[in-house]
Design a protein around this nucleic acid. Structure first.
Lengths: 207, 207
DNA sequence: ATGAAAGTGTAGCCTATTTAACATATTTTT
DNA sequence: AAAAATATGTTAAATAGGCTACACTTTCAT
């Protein structure tokens, strides 16, 4: 789920230690199950983090906007347990394990920066867990609300299917809720784009 | 959820840098919303990590057994976003931020150890997220299976209500499934303790 | 430019869970 | 040892959300 990013993590001064890489839309930056080496910093673009569970169902875990780390889970060179796919053409900086270890030694300030970033990721995952105690209306409300906050406007840049993938609901349920909200004037649908008219309604739903 | 701990994290040689603390059963080690300083290492006992979402519902996130870190989320001295409660009388070692920073400088080997531990925590959270694409039977099966694996026997040390709290199901649903399994001879219920008779059945359910 | 692929609109049925309600059993507190 | 607080057993009713099915649009690839 796209979640509120309160803090910007200032990695800029360390970027030149990493390797710059370009990924085209729909290209995978890394894939679940493959072994990783280190992590990536998203400089530009948009990346979707998904995870496939044992029964083969896919869930969107997070939509990452620039200035965030991705793939931290394989810092220890184990298997990635998620897949990262570029939603737009993206620019990332790759930091292999060894590079990062050296960096840490020379720049102790990186330690708190890194741990803050990782902890933030944990918070995102936790938010996802709490999501499933909510009703479907609440799930969607929370999601849209967060997305707006994050992208800083009231235009929703993701599709019905994405909302389904993010919340774990079916597309049909998402459609039903959205349609109801449209009738109630809470959102406006114009050629398949959604605009939030009454953000307060969403906020109240979630509390 | 109680999740499989494949690796033991060897913190023993660093414990004497932390402060030993004792917690009685039902006592909180830290509470959601309060500000934390550093993290804890669970030496002895059993700790339950819970999280309360916006609508006030409580979820059990994890049952921590000894030799694990807890409360890592407030390494950066921000608010805890979970609560840790001792299920049995427990012994923990507390590492405040400053202590840990100093430690890191002097013992660079701690960096990979620490990040492995944290990444492992993320994996646990992710497993929890994937849990909710499953049917209720599968959820319970996975939970029981993991608990057995972890505690290394086929006696289930948690209550129906705990199972409900862990899976996000209602107690009634849990009761129904358990009753059905009892009739099918998959588990045995003896004065409110559950014993798994056919572990393979559970394993197959989850795949 | 055109066919294929992906996304959306909509209806109806169906069942797995939730909610509510209450009795009973067990554990904890004083 | 009694009272209070928790946990469990059980049923019945209400419903939310899932699955199926299909027509229609829009977007993408070549």
């Amino acid at each position: 789920m796209a979640t509120l990013y309160e803090h910007v993590f200032d990695w800029d001064s360390y970027l030149h230690f990493g390797t710059r890489q370009f990924f085209k839309r729909k290209e995978a930056i890394y894939s679940q199950g493959t072994c990783g080496d280190g992590f990536y910093f998203l400089k530009k673009g948009l990346v979707r983090i998904v995870s496939v569970n044992a029964s083969g169902k896919e869930r969107i875990l997070n939509i990452v906007i620039p200035n965030q780390l991705i793939g931290v889970q394989s810092l220890d060179q184990r298997q990635h347990f998620t897949t990262a796919i570029a939603v737009k053409d993206s620019v990332v900086y790759h930091f292999p394990c060894e590079t990062f270890k050296t960096l840490l030694k020379e720049h102790p300030k990186l330690v708190p920066l890194f741990s803050r970033t990782v902890i933030h990721k944990m918070k995102i995952l936790l938010d996802r867990i709490n999501l499933d105690t909510l009703t479907s209306e609440q799930k969607i409300a929370l999601l849209l609300h967060n997305i707006c906050y994050e992208f800083k406007n009231y235009e929703i840049p993701i599709s019905q299917q994405d909302i389904a993938g993010c919340t774990g609901l079916t597309r049909i349920t998402v459609y039903k809720v959205l349609k109801q909200w449209q009738e109630d004037g809470i959102i406006e649908i114009m050629n398949r784009k959604y605009y939030i008219k009454k953000p307060d309604f969403l906020r109240n739903l979630v509390n």
